[in-house]
């Protein structure tokens, strides 16, 4: 029993420093705090404490359980999945600028989702199937883009940084055209607005839509995190990782598929939210280090935390109107992106 306890302890602490464990613990606390605050704050005042004490009215309960809570949970899981997918893709491509939004993965997912909404309305009238179909279509779109990027950047090595961004611009443009056409030809009832897909929003989410996405995202996080050590070894280059006993092809496939699932399921419900996958892993690296055993969970927590706050701002800045949340993340993310490019040029 003692030895089992010992071995469990060491498997948690292997290749992660105690400072990093403290940071992860603090990020956990911040995430719960921001969930707590975000649920209580908004154009309709609510108190989580009163709710827990049973002192809230029926209307307050409905606002809390049917509107506020799903929205905050959605922003948390979308932030977590974009953050961790950004970290995993940056590691996989050995490219500090790989962000699901910039390199076209989110756009691919959005195109997949819009396509299934427009076509699916005619072929799959079953609503419950529909709520799983939407993330699946988005995941297929995301997968397709990552595979294409991988094929196109193969053999480009570190030079691939610029090349990949160029491919990303092209993919974003193509997907933009596709989404634009689909938005134009479909009736409003089928498709949400173009702004929803390009800027993102957490509004209007309901439990039946949210539950499948939560399941998909949790499963992909569970599959992604054990790849942390393998992602570290991939930083030495694919031949070196193989020589250290890593089945490189399998690891690549598993990372591509799990990140695409996380991004796809997120985009299907909230549209394209830019720069989170870029900024979050860099911030996490900045405060604690670059090894993936710390970086992956750290990016998930930091992503959740920042997204909850960004959504909170999108709700309260211009009350009762809402700013698209993607506008807020881009406003913070794009100067950061410029700074990164500037720093890379100096290196």
């Amino acid at each position: 029993m003692i030895s089992r306890a010992l071995s469990l302890k060491s498997s948690i602490t292997e290749f992660i420093s105690s400072k990093q464990l403290v940071i992860l613990f603090l990020l956990c606390i911040f995430t719960f705090l921001s969930i707590f605050i975000a649920i209580g704050t908004g154009s309709y005042d609510l108190s989580v404490i009163n709710f827990l004490l049973g002192k809230t009215s029926g209307l307050q309960n409905i606002v809390l359980l049917e509107i506020r809570v799903p929205r905050v949970i959605l922003s948390a899981i979308v932030g977590a999945s974009l953050g961790i997918a950004g970290a995993a893709l940056q590691g996989l491509f050995r490219n500090p600028l790989a962000d699901p939004g910039l390199i076209g993965v989110s756009a691919g997912a959005a195109l997949g989702a819009t396509t299934i909404i427009v076509i699916g309305a005619n072929f799959f009238p079953n609503l419950y199937l529909g709520s799983f179909l939407l993330p699946v279509a988005a995941i297929s779109g995301a997968c397709f883009v990552i595979f294409m990027l991988y094929v196109l950047t193969k053999g480009f090595g570190y030079q691939g940084v610029t090349y990949m961004l160029l491919v990303g611009i092209a993919v974003n443009a193509i997907a933009g055209v596709g989404i634009g056409i689909l938005t134009y030809i479909s009736s409003d009832a089928e498709l949400r607005s173009l702004t929803f897909w390009t800027m993102g929003s957490f509004g209007g989410v309901t439990w039946p839509l949210l539950v499948p996405a939560i399941i998909i995202i949790f499963i992909s996080l569970i599959f992604l995190i054990p790849n942390a050590r393998k992602l570290d070894l991939l930083q030495l280059g694919e031949p070196e990782a193989y020589r250290l006993g890593i089945d490189v092809q399998r690891v690549k496939l598993s990372i591509i598929f799990t990140s695409a699932s996380a991004v796809g399921a997120s985009v299907a419900l909230s549209g394209m939210i830019g720069f989170v996958g870029l900024v979050v892993p860099h911030l996490v690296r900045l405060i604690g280090g670059v090894n993936h055993k710390y970086l992956l969970p750290g990016s998930a927590l930091m992503g959740a935390c920042l997204m909850i706050i960004a959504d909170l701002f999108s709700r309260i800045l211009l009350q009762p109107a809402e700013i698209p949340v993607g506008l807020i993340t881009s406003a913070i993310g794009s100067p950061f992106f410029l700074w990164l490019i500037f720093r890379m040029k100096r290196l």
């Binding site: 500090p96 570190y158 030495l236 280059g237 670059v290």
Partner: peptide, 17 residues
């Protein structure tokens, strides 16, 4: 060897072995 993209510490790199 080629260079590392991210800022790993020497300890991290040796541990990879």
């Amino acid at each position: 060897m080629q260079t590392l993209v991210f800022n790993f510490s020497v300890k991290d790199v040796i541990e990879m072995g």
